[in-house]
């Protein structure tokens, strides 16, 4: 598995803006897809060059998120049509630290992909890779 996530210029700011919007509107969690280039070699870095907002359709959006499936599929297919990879997904924790919750662990399904969490109150962005059993911390490098 790869050892780092690179965020292209502007992506971190875009993630924080989206999360702050959710903080003002709710508070509610916001979510979306990270697109860019997945590492082609075992120790390379995944690189997110853009993020695509997807509506949160969870029943209780203050403490849960679920990407709208149709919108998520459209975002994924748009990225692939542009020659980009799905690097992973992001969501916000408007009222708690940006670390995976028990619910995050129970519901993660995309093995090997990045799960990034944004905390708008503290302007923190942290990333993990879901191994199928656990979230491995993933250092973030901002270009």
């Amino acid at each position: 598995m790869t050892s780092e996530l690179t965020l292209a210029d502007g992506v971190r700011g875009a993630l924080l803006r989206h999360a702050r919007q959710g903080l003002r509107d709710g508070p509610r969690e916001v979510c979306g897809v990270l697109v860019g280039a997945r590492a082609r070699e075992r120790d390379g870095a995944d690189r997110a060059t853009d993020c695509r907002r997807v509506p949160n359709v969870a029943a209780n959006p203050r403490t849960e998120y679920e990407l709208d499936p149709a919108e998520a599929l459209a975002a994924i297919e748009d990225a692939e049509a542009a020659g980009l990879d799905v690097v992973g997904f992001y969501h916000s924790h408007p009222e708690s630290p940006p670390v995976p919750s028990e619910t995050d662990r129970d519901r993660a399904t995309w093995n090997g992909y990045v799960y990034l969490i944004v905390a708008p109150r503290t302007d923190e962005v942290r990333a993990w890779r879901w191994t199928g059993e656990a979230f491995d911390p993933l250092p973030i490098a901002v270009e």
């Binding site: 403490t63 849960e64 679920e66 990407l67 998520a72 619910t103 995309w110």
Partner: peptide, 8 residues
């Protein structure tokens, strides 16, 4: 088939 992307 889309694996659901959700959590808390």
């Amino acid at each position: 088939v889309l694996r659901l992307i959700k959590g808390g």
